[in-house]
Amino acid sequence: MNFESENAPEPVGAYPHAKKVGNLLFLSGVGPREKGTPNIPGVEFNTFGEIFSYDIELQCHSVFKNVKMILEDAGSSWDRIVDVTVFLTNMKNDFAKFNEIYAEYFKDNQPCRTTVEVNALPTPIAVELKVIATID
């Protein structure tokens, strides 16, 4: 069963926010975008529309907020996350800060995790999460 959250940012393609299969909830990739706007927390563009700078800390907090919204809207919760795949566009510069923030959010629940560096993500973001959680 597909699920669309009314509170999370709209998907940027033809996919649902989440899909329930048995007692598992699979979230599509979740980035830091804000619902209803093109805003991406912490991203600044130059006059050519290219990323001039970004704040990985602001993006991380926004991603975690978006994941939490989708989980709760679908009937699951943060403590039911069992697996996380992290996509970073700059592992060298952002991995340590990401790990620090991740540890704050996952101090009580430590799901399995894989982190990979990617060349780019579909929108001008620096981090995206793919999450699997349990659900009744």
Rank of each mutant, 00 (worst) to 15 (best):
Met1Gly: 08
Asn2Trp: 13
Asn2Thr: 09
Ser5Ala: 07
Asn7Asp: 04
Ala8Thr: 09
Val12Lys: 03
Gly13Arg: 03
Gly13Ala: 14
Ala18Pro: 04
Ala18Ile: 07
Lys20Cys: 06
Lys20Val: 15
Val21His: 02
Leu24Ser: 05
Leu24Ala: 05
Leu25Pro: 01
Leu25Gly: 04
Gly29Cys: 05
Val30Gln: 14
Arg33Met: 13
Glu34Thr: 15
Lys35Leu: 12
Pro41Leu: 13
Gly42Tyr: 08
Gly42Phe: 07
Glu44Ile: 14
Thr47Phe: 14
Phe48Cys: 02
Gly49Thr: 06
Gly49Ile: 10
Glu50Asn: 15
Phe52Leu: 15
Ile56Asn: 03
Ile56Val: 13
Leu58Asp: 08
Val63His: 04
Phe64Glu: 00
Lys65Asp: 13
Asn66Thr: 10
Asn66Ser: 08
Met69Glu: 08
Ile70Leu: 11
Glu72Ala: 04
Glu72Leu: 07
Gly75Thr: 10
Ser76His: 08
Ser77Arg: 07
Asp83Trp: 15
Val84Cys: 04
Thr85Arg: 13
Phe87Leu: 15
Leu88Gly: 06
Thr89His: 02
Met91Ile: 11
Asn93Pro: 00
Asp94His: 15
Phe95Leu: 13
Phe95Asp: 10
Ala96Asp: 11
Phe98Lys: 04
Asn99Ile: 01
Tyr102Leu: 04
Tyr102His: 10
Ala103Leu: 04
Glu104Thr: 14
Phe106Trp: 09
Gln110Thr: 15
Gln110Met: 12
Cys112Ala: 13
Arg113Val: 11
Arg113Asn: 02
Thr114Ala: 11
Thr115His: 00
Val116Ala: 08
Asn119Cys: 01
Val127His: 05
Lys130Ala: 08
Ala133His: 05
Thr134Trp: 01
